[in-house]
């Protein structure tokens, strides 16, 4: 019964009414990326808009949703190395990171009509000032390992 439920009932009848529940997030995420071509790295750039190909608001919505899935995965799977640096191994081998990477690469290909030699993603986490005190935690950056394409 469980198998049947998972195969048929969940795909056709699932609902999700947890927007802004139980809590509204007090953080927001912005994904930046940079790429290298023939040994030269670009500056960090944002990864949400598709101007001038399209300025449809749903594309930014998609980018933000993918970033949110990645942020949720980072909360679960980021670990620390013995030297206190962040270990990204679990995250970069998981589906949310692969989706974001795929999205960034496809976006780059659409906008520039070429594939970079390497690409690197960076998650920028911004904290909302506290409702009560107005205090704001400083922003955090998480730089993922460089992804190099096979030539």
């Amino acid at each position: 019964m469980t198998a049947i439920r998972n195969q048929y009932m969940v795909p056709y009848f699932h609902q999700g009414w947890k927007l802004f529940a139980p809590d509204v997030p007090a953080t927001q995420y912005e994904l930046n990326y940079r790429y290298s071509k023939e040994g030269t790295w670009s500056d960090w750039g944002e990864s949400e808009t598709f101007d001038p190909i399209s300025s449809h608001p749903r594309l930014a919505y998609v980018a933000q949703k993918l970033q949110m899935y990645l942020a949720m995965d980072m909360k679960k799977n980021l670990t620390f190395n013995p030297d206190s640096t962040i270990n990204y191994d679990l995250v970069v081998n998981d589906v949310p990171y692969m989706r974001v990477l795929y999205f960034a690469v496809r976006r780059h290909e659409m906008l520039t009509t070429e594939r970079p030699d390497s690409i690197q993603l960076r998650m920028h986490v911004v904290f909302t000032p506290s409702f009560d005190s107005g205090e704001q935690r400083p922003a955090q950056f998480f730089e993922f390992p460089v992804y190099t394409f096979n030539q």
């Binding site: 609902q15 009414w17 802004f20 139980p22 809590d23 509204v24 927001q28 930014a60 909302t128 409702f131």
Partner: peptide, 30 residues
């Protein structure tokens, strides 16, 4: 059920009960 469940899930959190949810939602740029 949409209203009932969305409302009940909100009761499980902190921001809706303390009154800060709209404030935090308006800070989400997207």
């Amino acid at each position: 059920m949409v209203y009932a469940l969305a409302g009940m899930f909100k009761l499980l959190g902190r921001t809706w009960l303390e009154g800060s949810s709209v404030y935090y939602a308006l800070h989400l740029d997207h």
